[in-house]
């Protein structure tokens, strides 16, 4: 790892304009960036929202403890379900992404505005093909994610991966 783990968290939040909504979004952004060469050395396993890193969870705790990032909570109006909002506690200027992800900051800005289920599906599709080596990932992702893959979300996820040159990079029809 080139940098302390909390710096990856601080850098991601800063690149998103100082604010990222949802822990799930944070997890998927970190996963996709690591696949592009961010180099955090976070270890990922598969959980119900796709690739997940407990190391990243710990890094978030460190980022809060060392006053780089603050985690606040909001609640969905309809059912009161809680979600996290991460905000930069102070400016973060260090160049974490360097030459490995030349447009890292732009990517993060885009990801931060992407529907969280689309990010989940993108990360999951990549995980299934590249990590679990499931050749028939299209069947497997529909098995696992069920109705989440409907309404064009899976197609949008695959297009996102294609745009950032991550596999699977084929277009699929609805």
């Amino acid at each position: 790892m080139k940098h302390e783990p909390e710096k990856y968290v601080a850098a991601i939040v800063a690149a998103a304009g100082g604010r990222i909504v949802s822990r799930i979004r944070m997890q998927k952004i970190a996963y996709l960036l690591d696949q592009l060469g961010m180099g955090s050395e976070f270890e990922y396993t598969y959980h119900h929202y796709g690739p997940y890193s407990r190391d990243l969870d710990n890094a978030i705790l460190d980022a809060e403890a060392f006053d780089l990032v603050e985690e606040k909570f909001q609640h969905r109006v309809t059912d009161g379900a809680k979600y996290s909002v991460f905000e930069s506690s102070k400016p973060f200027e260090e160049n974490i992404f360097g030459s490995s992800i030349p447009k890292g900051k732009d990517l993060i800005k885009d990801f931060s505005k992407t529907n969280v289920t689309v990010l989940e599906l993108a990360a999951t599709a990549h995980w299934l093909l590249e990590i679990e080596k499931v050749s028939n990932w299209q069947v497997e992702i529909k098995n696992r994610k069920g109705s989440k893959t409907e309404s064009g979300r899976l197609e949008e996820a695959i297009e996102l991966l294609k745009k950032i040159n991550l596999k699977p990079s084929i277009s699929i029809s609805a």
């Binding site: 909504v21 379900a81 979600y83 969280v116």
Partner: peptide, 15 residues
């Protein structure tokens, strides 16, 4: 019936 999608700031039609 409960909302299945993880909560997010942007309003969406949740499954």
């Amino acid at each position: 019936e409960i909302e299945m999608d993880a909560p997010d700031e942007a309003p969406t039609v949740s499954r």
